[in-house]
Design a protein around this nucleic acid. Structure first.
Lengths: 224, 224
DNA sequence: CCGTCGCTCTTTGTATACCTAGAGCTATCA
DNA sequence: TGATAGCTCTAGGTATACAAAGAGCGACGG
């Protein structure tokens, strides 16, 4: 579907992908120490490509040099999430405005229609996340700005982790579909202000839900 | 003042700093091919740290893999600059808003006063760029958002190159001081809307000036 | 018994040797 | 004469060997 297959890549790419996935999925929790020799042996690559992978993860902000000698998986607390969403709001509002100006209306009208349909039938997570991914891709394509796209990609990388920490409930998922439908409609209608403000609203709701979910999880840490 | 000295750094850092400076100063022009062995020999380091330096430059967007085999200094044309400023506007407007909310008013009042003073006496480029740098640092500090700060740092890295391409004239420099004064005053007054809109205006003027300067340079490429 | 000095061992940073793949050239065949 | 197949050679990708520095521990002295 998207990028190259697992076997034909360079060792450094495989190491990066593997570590990225493991961090996003929580297999490598925040604070986990990533020793070079240890990880190189585990992933079956030598230290050279592994170091390259760690450097990329550090550039992404998923890994941090705790001390000059030890690299750890970065922590994600509520303040981090708030900061991430401040950044995200700035970028996605700008992206929505630009898309409203430049996008092919037909494409976003089609996406809007799909969001509307999905909103009626209560489809599963799978379908929802897939649709979101297509919407994001269309947005990136319409905005046509490598700086913006690159920054958005980084954000999405972090969001995968955040979503894992804060399980979104079905009600929120459903509401999110509706919010996306509005954004898509606004872009299709070339209404930049509406697109930006709808994005603002969407991100506000998403953040609120995530922080609430996080607070909940802290009070009742029973469900493993 | 800022980062570590030249002699005590790691070889990879030295290579990165050197290449960065050379690209920003135009010694390595757009399109210049950066062979690993060649650059490693030239900079007096081995290929391993040099590769790390190239990877960082690639992450910054200053270097690009033209083909799977050849890495070149990235090009900067008018469209790139427009895209950069779209991105910059999104981030700096957001930063201005956040600073207006969070900054210590006294600090920005002081900066505003300095801009006002600089505006009266026609100080040189040196003083101007130094003051801007202090303003940027204060903004970063006030915003207190690692994602935003990190993205702004990347932008500033690119801006050094852009400034080189488009020589800013004294009139523009003077106007820019005034615009900065207004932004600083707005932040000190905790007026988020004014801070954001003044930033918008400032970036619009800066971009217009740069693009005009670029068009000029293309018609009369005489002055070496 | 506690503090400090020094050693060792681990871990990162760097250099280099090896491997592989692709671009370009040449020679041969149609 | 043109095209193609094969070869060579270069440059990147990977593995490994080497160097240096810091943390942890132990022994010795006060």
């Amino acid at each position: 579907m998207e990028a190259g297959k697992g076997e034909s890549m360079r060792a450094s790419d495989r190491a990066y992908r593997t570590l990225l996935t493991e961090i996003q999925d929580g297999l490598l929790p925040a604070g986990a120490v990533l020793g070079e020799v240890e990880q190189a042996a585990r992933l079956g690559v030598s230290r050279t490509p592994l170091r390259e992978a760690l450097a990329r993860l550090a550039a992404d902000g998923l890994v941090v040099q705790q001390s000059p000698r030890v690299t750890v998986v970065s922590d994600v607390d509520a303040d981090d999430i708030r900061a991430l969403f401040e950044f995200r709001r700035a970028l996605e509002e700008a992206a929505a405005r630009l898309a409203a100006t430049r996008a092919d209306p037909a494409e976003f009208a089609e996406l809007a229609a799909e969001f509307d349909r999905t909103s009626l039938r209560g489809e599963g997570r799978e379908h929802y996340y897939d649709l979101i991914a297509r919407f994001d891709a269309a947005l990136d394509d319409a905005v046509d700005n490598i700086y913006l796209s690159s920054a958005l990609r980084t954000i999405r990388t972090h969001l995968v982790r955040v979503r894992r920490l804060a399980r979104e409930n079905p009600a929120r998922l459903s509401a999110s579909v509706g919010e996306h439908a509005l954004i898509a409609h606004a872009i299709a209608a070339k209404d930049a202000d509406l697109a930006a403000h709808a994005t603002h609203v969407h991100l506000h709701n998403a953040l609120t839900n995530i922080l609430a979910s996080l607070a909940e999880a802290r009070t009742e840490p029973g469900a493993a």
